[in-house]
């Protein structure tokens, strides 16, 4: 394999990894904030990808979906939180997992009812339909766009969490929610905000991924498993861990798909197993 092919594979992998990172932030943040395990996180991603599909059908371009889909996913997450999930905050983790799992089934079945069981393609936006010539190589410009958007979002997220007052509050609440409550912040609003924000990010990941992989009802389940691998390796509640893990499995998947296409997804889990065998507590060493 020539170096250039390798570099392009790695670039693709960064794009996929960034989508995985954006997908996983909400999961890890909601757990860090409220010790809440959200099995419906993949459903936020799936619903948003389908919204992107519908928007592309109506307007002829998927671009507006990059704003509207995350918004819809945020509303979906917020409504779920108010109607159902907030009732489970005092229940054991197992109960929260099962309730959110049931919610994911409901979302999946609703989407199947509206759009059918078959997968659908989402056209790449026209302005990114072409290719870019990079160092004598042809590269699809939408993929480059995805990498750019994802990097921007990841950097903005990073700055927001590490440098702003809101981020400081979120980090503090993740460390000790009770103490933040005592300081006068309304934890109910923080929780609602976390769900809306986490849902929107999962939604953005879904909208970005839709033109790359198409949409199908089972994509939420697949995304949930990927997000789990990211937080198993990166540690729940850790942003830097999530970024590292997401990039690692994104690049693994991308490079493997050039060497052994049938085993590209398998190797995501293969890498996870190997890392766990040597580092039982994941990449960052926290348990």
């Amino acid at each position: 394999m020539s170096t250039q092919v390798f570099i392009f594979g790695a670039l693709n992998g960064v794009g996929i990894g960034m989508i995985y990172f954006i997908l996983s932030i909400g999961l890890t943040m909601i757990f860090g904030l409220m010790q809440f395990v959200n099995f419906a996180h993949g459903a936020f991603y799936m619903v948003s990808a389908y919204a992107a599909f519908a928007i592309a059908q109506w307007t002829g371009s998927v671009l507006p979906a990059l704003l509207i889909s995350p918004l819809l996913a945020a509303i979906f997450a917020l409504v779920s939180e108010r109607v159902l999930l907030q009732r489970t905050y005092n229940l054991p983790h197992e109960a929260q997992i099962l309730i959110t799992f049931a919610l994911a089934i409901l979302a999946q079945e609703t989407v199947t009812m509206i759009f059918g069981t078959l997968g659908k393609n989402v056209p790449v936006p026209e302005m990114f339909n072409g290719v870019v010539i990079l160092g004598g190589f042809v590269y699809p410009s939408y993929r480059l766009f995805v990498v750019a958007v994802a990097v921007v979002v990841a950097v903005v997220m990073w700055l927001a969490i590490e440098r702003t007052r809101l981020g400081a509050m979120l980090r503090a609440a993740a460390e000790n929610a009770e103490m933040v409550g005592l300081l006068g912040f309304d934890s109910r609003k923080i929780f609602m905000g976390a769900f809306a924000f986490g849902g929107a990010l999962a939604g953005l990941a879904g909208a970005l991924a839709a033109p790359l992989r198409g949409v199908e009802p089972l994509m939420g389940r697949e995304a949930l498993a990927i997000a789990f691998v990211v937080v198993i390796l990166g540690g729940l509640g850790s942003f830097s861990g999530a970024l590292l893990a997401a990039l690692l499995i994104g690049i693994t998947q991308s490079l493997m798909s050039m060497i052994w296409p049938g085993g590209a997804h398998l190797m995501i889990y293969g890498v996870m197993t190997m890392i766990l065998a040597f580092r039982p507590t994941g990449l960052m060493g926290r348990s």
Partner: peptide, 27 residues
């Protein structure tokens, strides 16, 4: 590998390994 991790990690790992089995069968 699984019992070394507690609580929610345990649950997530069971799901990840199940997904791995599916991709193994496919590969």
């Amino acid at each position: 590998l699984i019992v070394r991790r507690q609580g929610v990690y345990f649950v997530m790992l069971t799901l990840a390994f199940a997904q791995m089995g599916f991709f193994l069968a496919l590969a």
